[in-house]
Amino acid sequence: MVDRYVSDPIDLPERDAGAGYFRADLVFYDVDHSGPSYEALVFLNAPDADAATPRDDEHYAGSFKIFGHGSCFGDVGHCDVPTGPRDPFDLRPPHHLVPASKTVVVTEAFKRLVAPGDETMTVTVVAVTPGDGPNDVLKFDRVRLLTYS
């Protein structure tokens, strides 16, 4: 099953045309991993990309994979992630379902698809769950582009 996300246009900072980037990352923050396992395919400037878009498409930038918790195996509330400030004397490990950050290295696609002077870009994420899994697996708070030169 497939879940899709297409970002709003991401404003790109003005760049010197001569500046070279040695690495570009897309960081997905607060990714939910409480459900089934899946792969999230990432495309740049391809709002129509879907599960049929091949990995050798020029807009394909990489993927991240989620090894999912599956479902809740405890009693009521077992999988509720605590919210609010944490007591500084609480030395227990973080809750097992604290959302994850996933970094996809997109350097080559970024160099190929985003020219100096481009003002925006979009990110499309196609989450594919093998088999007959649910199709609403993709949940994250925000995606950020990081470039290094």
Partner: peptide, 16 residues
């Protein structure tokens, strides 16, 4: 590593 778990599927496809 996550991708290999997903690739094997079945029992390997979930943490439990």
């Amino acid at each position: 590593h996550n991708g290999v778990h997903v690739w094997v599927g079945g029992t390997m496809g979930g943490i439990a």
